[in-house]
């Protein structure tokens, strides 16, 4: 069953690649669109460009990713901390919870240029924006996890007269781990997006800068290469979290073991 799904996904990916090449061919050779190369160049030619400029592009991507990762780590840590504080203190929860809800309704990324303008330091603002975009989904999901611990599970700890510290280490935190991972899965591509956005708002040396310069400078090949790399690192960030989830949460596997 699992193998089947993998082949289906693989075939679909192949289908998307073929479709891309097909549309590119259609634009260039049948519609004779003069902008064909700008609208959708052949996928293989983009990959060729990436390979040809590999060190340049990968360096730029690395800058963007490393800043995103720093911000992501900071934001996640802050989010987890706030969630834990909210689960301990009713007052803290009352104060912060409505704002966490509201944060999910407003376009937070809109604030990015403002923060960039206030901080005036591109590396720092990359980190701050990535951190604060990570913060909200992580805090909200983590709190959701902490609050869904079944009362019986807590009563068990109570019956052993366990200390608050042990309750958190042995029960609350491991229980919330799957919820935390959901939050991280949402946040990871967001932090990459944030980092690229700050690149494009006027930094030096990130993949977003490559994208912007090539967009206005007319280097179509580099532009498409950058776009593809951006998409790839976004997906990669998500994939890493999924992988981490598989490793960290082995009990989620529902393989049937024992029947009496």
């Amino acid at each position: 069953m699992k193998k089947n799904k993998a082949t289906a996904a693989l075939l679909w990916t192949a289908g998307v690649v073929l479709l891309w090449e097909g549309v590119a061919f259609f634009l260039a050779n049948i519609l004779h669109d003069k902008m064909a190369n700008a609208k959708l160049p052949y996928l293989h030619s983009i990959i060729y460009t990436i390979a040809a400029n590999f060190s340049e592009i990968s360096n730029a991507a690395l800058i963007t990713v490393s800043k995103a990762a720093t911000g992501f780590a900071l934001g996640a840590a802050a989010g987890i901390m706030l969630a834990v504080i909210m689960s301990i203190s009713k007052t803290a929860e009352k104060i912060a919870f409505p704002y966490l809800i509201i944060s999910q309704m407003i376009p937070v990324l809109g604030l990015a240029p403002i923060i960039f303008n206030l901080v005036r330091n591109m590396d720092l603002s990359r980190i701050i924006i990535a951190a604060y975009l990570t913060f909200f989904p992580v805090a909200a999901n983590m709190l959701g996890g902490l609050k869904s611990v079944e009362p019986e599970k807590r009563e068990l700890m109570y019956s052993y007269a366990a200390k608050k510290r042990s309750v958190y280490i042995k029960l609350m935190l491991p229980f919330s781990l799957p919820y935390l991972m959901t939050g991280l899965k949402i946040a990871a591509p967001l932090s990459i997006t944030a980092s690229i956005l700050v690149d494009m708002l006027g930094s030096k040396g990130g993949i977003g800068v490559k994208l912007l310069y090539s967009l206005y400078g007319g280097e179509k090949d580099i532009f498409w290469a950058s776009v593809l790399v951006c998409a790839a690192i976004g997906m990669l960030s998500c994939f890493i979290i999924i992988l981490a989830e598989k490793i960290l949460i082995p009990w989620k596997k529902t393989s049937s073991g024992g029947e009496e």
Binding site: K153, E155, W251
Partner: peptide, 11 residues
């Protein structure tokens, strides 16, 4: 104490 459900910790 043994509860109505086993209350095992999944992890």
């Amino acid at each position: 104490i043994v509860f109505q459900s086993p209350v095992l910790y999944d992890w």
